[in-house]
Design a protein around this nucleic acid. Structure first.
Lengths: 205, 205
DNA sequence: TAGATTGTTAATCGATTAACAATC
DNA sequence: TAGATTGTTAATCGATTAACAATC
C-alpha cells in the first residue's frame, strides 16, 4: 500500500469518525452522497478517496457502514495505538487531557509534564503529571510517539527540545510560536488566533 | 486587491506573527531566507506570497520588518477587528478565553455562553458568561463575526443552530463532530484527535 | 564589479472535478 | 429494463518549484 498524502489521510480519518457516528445510530448502509452531506465534502472526492483502498461499495446500494469503517481503519491505523505525551497541564493542557475525541482505543495520552511543583503527582483524567526533567526517561519507557506542546510560548522551544532529546518524531504545537527542530521531526502547528483570523479573512467578500 | 486563497492567507498570518516576534527582538531587517528558516517554509514560496501585495523588499537587503508587517496587515486585516463569541465555557472554552495569541488588537472575544447555571454571570479573563438563550440578542448587539463551538458534542448542532439564527457567518468547531449549516456559513473544524492521528499516519514510513 | 537577494515567468507537480463505463 | 450508485479515466484547475532576470 502506497503512502497517502496528508490531505487524504485527514479526510479518511473524518470518514472513520463519521462512520462511527452512523453506526451508533444503527445506520448500517451509507452512500457517498450521504457522507458528502454530513461532511460537507463532494461525493466524488469521497469515492475517489475510498477507492485508494479496495472495492468495497456496491453500485445502487452504497457501503456497509461497518465494513467501510473497518477497511479504512485497517489500512490507516493497522493495529497501532498512538501514544501521546503532553507538555503543560494548564488550561489548554487540561482541556486536551479531557478531550472527548473519537477512537479512544487508538489514541492514548500516557503522561503529562509540567514545571509547577503544585501540579506534580496529581492526575487529570487518569493521567499523571510529572516534572519536566523526567520527560526523557518516561517518554522512552512508555514508547510515546507524539508530543503535544501546551506550555506558555516562552517555554515552547524548551519543550520542543525535550521532545527531540527524548526521541519523539512528531510534535503538535498549540503555542502561538514557531519551533525549530531537526528535519526528521514532523511538526503540526495549531495556532487558534491564526485560525480565527484566517476564517475571518476568508469570509470577507 | 483580488481575494487570496485560504492557504496563502494562513501563511501570511504566520508571517505577520513571525514579524511581530522579530520586532520584539529588535531585528529590523529580515530576508525571505531567514523567514524560511523560522517558519519551516521555502523562501521562494514566501517571496511569492509576499509578491501578492506590493514591491517592498530590496534585493541584497531583504525586508524592513516593520514595513513588511504593516503591508501584510493592511491588505489582510485593514482596520477590522474580529469579534468572537464562545459557546461552552468548560475546560476547552476557558483555555480559549485565556489563549495568549498574538495580535490582541485584531481579535476580540466579546461574550461567552454556557448552559450551566453556576457559570452564568461569572467572568473569565474579563469576558462575561451568559445563558445560551440570550445568544441571539447579545450576538447581534455586539456585532460578533465568528462563533466558536467548545460544547460537548451532544450539543454541537444546537450551538451551531444558535449561531446561524444569530446571523453569524463563520464558525470554528472544536467539537469532534460535523455540523450542518447553510452554505453561506463558513465552517472550520478543529478535531484534536484527527490531528494527532493524521500526524501519526504521516510519520509512518 | 561581484554577489546576494528580490520578484516574476515558465514548468512541474498534485489535487479536484468532469465524464462515463460498470454494475447491481 | 430503468435508475441509482460505484469506481475509474481524462480534463481541469491550482499550488509549488525551478529558472532567471532585475537590482541594490
Amino acid at each position: 500500500m502506497k503512502k497517502l498524502p496528508r490531505k487524504i489521510i485527514t479526510r479518511v480519518l473524518l470518514y472513520i469518525r463519521t462512520l462511527e457516528g452512523l453506526l451508533k445510530e444503527k445506520r448500517y448502509l451509507v452512500s457517498s452522497k450521504q457522507l458528502a452531506e454530513i461532511t460537507g465534502l463532494s461525493d466524488v472526492k469521497i469515492r475517489k478517496d475510498i477507492s485508494n483502498f479496495k472495492k468495497i461499495g456496491r453500485p445502487r446500494i452504497g457501503y456497509k457502514t461497518a465494513d467501510l469503517k473497518k477497511t479504512l481503519e485497517n489500512y490507516l491505523l493497522q493495529n497501532n495505538t498512538v501514544h501521546l505525551v503532553l507538555f503543560g497541564a494548564g488550561n489548554l493542557g487540561s482541556a486536551i487531557l479531557k478531550y472527548p475525541g473519537f477512537h479512544r482505543s487508538k489514541v492514548k495520552l500516557v503522561a503529562a509534564f509540567d514545571a509547577a511543583k503544585t501540579k506534580i503527582g496529581r492526575k487529570i483524567n487518569g493521567v499523571r503529571i510529572y516534572p519536566v526533567e523526567r520527560a526523557p526517561e518516561i517518554i522512552k519507557r512508555c514508547h510515546a510517539d507524539i508530543g503535544i506542546i501546551a506550555v506558555p510560548k516562552e517555554h515552547c522551544q524548551e519543550a520542543a527540545d525535550y521532545m527531540v532529546l527524548s526521541g519523539l518524531h512528531g510534535i503538535v504545537n498549540f503555542a502561538p510560536c514557531s519551533i525549530s527542530v531537526p528535519a526528521k521531526v514532523q511538526v503540526r502547528n495549531m495556532d487558534f488566533t491564526i485560525e480565527f483570523l484566517s476564517l475571518f479573512c476568508d469570509m470577507q467578500k
